[in-house]
Amino acid sequence: MQTSIRPGQVWLDTKGERIQAHGGSLFYENDTFYWYGENKEKTTPGSGVWTWGVRAYSSTDLYNWDDLGLIIPPVLDDPASPLHPAQKMDRPHIIFNEETGKYVCWVKLLGDSAHATQRSTVLTADSLLGPYEVVRAGFEPLGMSAGDFDLVVDPITKKAYYYFEKVHTELICAELSADYTDVSGEYSTHFPHPSPPFTREAPAHFERHGIHYLLTSGSTGYFPNFSEVASAPDYHGPWAVLGDPHPDDPTRTSFRSQISCVFRHPKKKDLYIALADRWLPQLPEDIPNVYDVVAAMARGQAPPDTSGGDRSAMAAGLGENTAIADYVWLPIRFDGDIPRIDWLDEWRLEDYA
C-alpha cells in the first residue's frame, strides 16, 4: 500500500505491475480519481509499437491505482484505422459535454509513412470508461498539422477550447463546436518559433484566481528540455512568458520530464499538481541540456561532452524503450502569481489544506 507520491520512482498498480498511462490526464467523478493515458507496455526497442491503446486506472487517494484495462483498445485487423498501432496514436484527452451527455476523447495521430502531417481523431462514449466510438477520423483541424494538445472546458460557459501545436510552427487556441467533436473555426495563434527545438509543444492549461496559465515544453522528441510557463487574462491571451517554472533544476530539463497536464485537486484549497512523464529514465541525471547543445553548434563550438558512460546512455535512450517510462508528479507552488515547481523526493496530499 502506497502512502505518498515519489516522483521519478517506479509506480506500480495494485496488482504490482507498472502503471501505463503516459501522456495522460486525471478525471474526477463520483468521488473517484481516474488516470488514463497511453498504454506503452509493448513499446520496446524493435517492437514497431508506438502505443497499444488507452489504459485507465481508478483511485480514491491518488496513491494506489486499480487497473481498469484498455478503455480504447487498438484495432489490429484494419491498418487504416486510426486506432491501429501503425497510426501511432498518442496524447488522449477526455472531456464531458453536459449538453449531449457524451464523453469526448481527442487523440493525436503521428500516422504512417503515407502521411506527412499529424492528424486528429475524435471518439465519444456514454461512459468515461467506454466503449468509445470513432466519430471523426484522421482529420487536420483548421487545415493544420496538429501535434501535442490539451482540451479545456470553461466551468461557467461550458465552451471548450483546444490548445494544440501547429507542428513545428506555433501554438493554436481553437474553439470547439457545441458538441466538442470539431473545431468551430474561431482560433488564435501564439508563441511563433521557426523550428524545433524552440517550437512549443505539450501544452497544459490551468486557471487560478482568474489567471490562465500554459505550461509548454520545447520540441526535442523524448529527450527532456526545460518547460516554459506563460500567463494571460483570457483563453486567447495575450500571453506573457514567465520563464522556466523549475527554478531549482540546474540541468534545465524539467527534472528530466515532460509535463502532460495540470490537475487541480477538487478537495484541496489550492493544490495544483503537474503530471509529467520521464520518458527515458535510463538517461543520466547530468545529460547535457539540448538547448546548450544547439547553441554551441550554432556558435561553431563543440557541444557539451557526452563521452564515456553518457554516450552509451544516450544511445540506449535513442532506442525509446518507453515501456519503462516513469512519472514525475509534483505540486505547484505560487510565488505571487508565478507558478513554481520544486523537486521533492516524496510528498503527501495530507500536507496540503
Rank of each mutant, 00 (worst) to 15 (best):
Y28Q: 08
L344D: 12
V167Y: 03
K166W: 13
W329F: 12
S307H: 01
P194A: 12
H115C: 14
H246E: 10
D351G: 14
R311W: 08
H209V: 10
V167C: 14
H265G: 08
T32D: 07
Y36N: 06
G243Q: 12
E133N: 12
L280G: 14
E170Q: 05
P247M: 06
P266T: 03
R200S: 09
D78T: 08
W52Y: 01
W65Y: 13
D292W: 02
T43G: 08
Y162Q: 13
G37H: 05
A232V: 15
Y272L: 00
S184N: 14
E346F: 02
P196V: 02
D342Q: 15
Y36S: 12
A86F: 11
K158I: 14
V241E: 13
P233L: 05
M1H: 08
D13V: 12
P82E: 02
F164D: 01
I324Y: 11
Y213F: 10
G237K: 07
V167K: 03
G317N: 05
Q20D: 12
D345Y: 07
M314F: 11
Y57P: 00
R200I: 13
L275S: 00
P339Q: 02
G309K: 15
G37V: 00
R200H: 12
T251S: 10
L62I: 07
F27G: 10
P288W: 05
